[in-house]
Design a binder for these strands. Structure first.
Lengths: 343, 343
DNA sequence: TTGAAAGCGCTACCAC
DNA sequence: GTGGTAGCGCTTTCAA
């Protein structure tokens, strides 16, 4: 059991057979290469007996393929990404691929470094939540015929497969919902970011507000992701300055958590004093009291489409660059107590 | 920019220099090998110009090392693991290592398969939340001189480095806290699992209850992890059968979420009707109303110790097996409103 | 039906 | 100071 490592060569020696033959058998090409049944059996038995495992590294080096996909997300501790990761891994596994994840922490330099590392490890494909700074790297990946697919956001002026959701539309409709509920002053709370999904969510809000001839109120926090402290003091200050705000629309769920802290500190009642709504659902929202309305992204479907999109590229290796795989999925609005119609 | 891939050989040809020399320079051995300054400059300039990147795959194949560590957790979408993952990644990066994660989903077969895959990809070390079924695989990893460190739980009868927390003690003290608050019937809610951390948490509870001459009440759900639905109906049934339960101690935070659902459905008041306490803090607990007391594990420290422990093995390559690195860290009890002293 | 051998890109020993 | 070359373990073409 502790035989350091047994290679194809050792087997060849032990069995007095050539390396080639063994390689064929191991790779299921026995039929094709018309190798005798006895030979196959002999080799297979021996392989099973010594517990031989081919060295993937060497296989990759030789073949240029690795059956490994990389998932690069902004922050793996964000529940949206963590869930996508889990779903993707499952699906990849079924298709014979391994997934390895890593977090870019929205650090373009780190992301570049990671991309180079993985490139030189012959991974077959990349699933990425990109930052704008990654445009060149991604372009190169495509040029060099790696399978690439983006999600959550995409990069303008870059022709690349992606899976996103209807950010603008959902945001628009959700805002209208608040308006129908009687909101007069809706504040959109977001972070500074030029990422497309954030821009689209904002756009949807602005559009709905404009259509209702209301004034827009946008509060923008400095960029951060979910992992920081959720104290919400900045939002609290904003609300103190805008005591007549009667609805808050949070661009992400972690912003909503901060907002809930702020609301609590100010002892505001939801939805009586303020309605609350968030983009991107979280199990938390159904448990909080009152429960929080949210726009739920179709996680399972996103993962499905990502696999589908990347497999297309992986399969027809080479001519893939022409493939158009740009998917925009529908979200589901989940109304809960925080936006209940005011009687 | 789109030069498919440029290898060390191409450089050698272009510069009329030998491969060896280039390899030395690239690997910072120019000094040691006393290579002339001009030569170094010539090569470095060219390397920079063409953007040459060494092929890690080939390096690993040759050297047997990869500077990659694998983090295998039960479920990456569980916030505890996701946070550890993020912290570890950061620390690994600083030490020149890459981390790749994967989820075992508590599936021993899948975990074995993953271990084999990574072994044959020459990863340098494994950081694992093991299941009992993994004992053999882990033993082999150690025999084969991979760096290995376990966390969250460990495997009895297996001599392996690990980083865990004081489960039993924290559980004991937390139970006493409930008793001091006047609880007469404390229910410990857990899942069926022989994992050491779960057993220890249970043991701590039992000990404290026994010492107070109270009867233990343990409700055990079938095993599951955080990703399922949080409806809490089983807990609700249990509580209906035990209407006099006046304190609930949840062995994990996701169980607490289920419990909170149940409590809400039963319209019980926290802490008046039932006190609530959970092992493993979650940002949710400080936001929920009333806020929920919890035993917080020292995430940052866990990640630190894991890196420290695995680096020891990585550094003194070979004789590492004798190293004893078994750490048990102290948790922090965070009292919140859900266990406030009853007046 | 099987085998020899080239070579993926790199490291490192040994020679000059 | 610099270069030739033998592999790391595997796939695959070509030959026998």
């Amino acid at each position: 059991m502790a035989n350091k490592k047994i290679s194809i060569k050792d087997i060849a020696k032990a069995l007095g057979v050539s390396i080639t033959t063994i390689s064929f058998i191991i790779n299921g090409k026995a039929e094709e290469k018309r190798i005798s049944k006895e030979m196959v059996k002999k080799v297979e038995d021996y392989v099973a007996k010594v517990g031989y495992r081919p060295n993937h590294l060497a296989q990759s080096l030789r073949s240029g393929k690795s059956k490994v996909l990389v998932l690069m997300v902004e922050d793996i501790s964000n529940s949206f990404f963590a869930n996508i990761a889990r779903l993707l891994e499952e699906k990849a596994f079924k298709n014979g691929y391994k997934i390895i994840y890593c977090s870019t922490e929205n650090n373009t330099e780190k992301a570049k470094e990671l991309i180079h590392t993985f490139k030189s490890r012959n991974v077959d494909g990349f699933i990425i939540t990109p930052t704008a700074g990654l445009k060149n790297e991604i372009e190169n990946l495509i040029k060099e015929d790696f399978a690439v697919i983006l999600f959550d956001r995409w990069i303008p002026d870059l022709d690349c497969s992606h899976v996103i959701v209807e950010n603008r539309r959902s945001s628009f409709e959700a805002t209208q919902h608040l308006i129908e509920n009687g909101a007069k002053k809706i504040v959109f709370i977001t972070v500074t970011s030029d990422q497309t999904q954030m821009q689209d969510r904002l756009a949807g809000y602005l559009e709905a507000v404009k259509m209702a001839k209301m004034s827009p109120y946008v509060f923008e926090e400095p960029f951060h992701t979910s992992t920081e402290e959720f104290q919400g003091d900045q939002i609290k200050e904003y609300l103190l300055d805008h005591p007549d705000a009667d609805a808050l629309f949070f661009a992400t769920n972690y912003l909503a958590f901060e907002g809930l802290h702020a609301i609590r500190k100010l002892e505001l009642k939801i939805p009586k004093d303020v309605q609350v709504l968030a983009f991107d659902d979280h199990f938390f929202f159904s448990l909080y009291q009152p429960s929080i309305s949210a726009i739920a992204q179709p996680l399972e479907l996103i993962a499905d489409k990502l696999m589908e999109g990347i497999l297309i590229q992986l399969d027809d290796c080479g001519k893939s660059n022409s493939v158009e795989f740009k998917v925009e999925l529908v979200n589901q609005f989940i109304q809960r107590k925080s936006t209940e119609f005011k009687v």
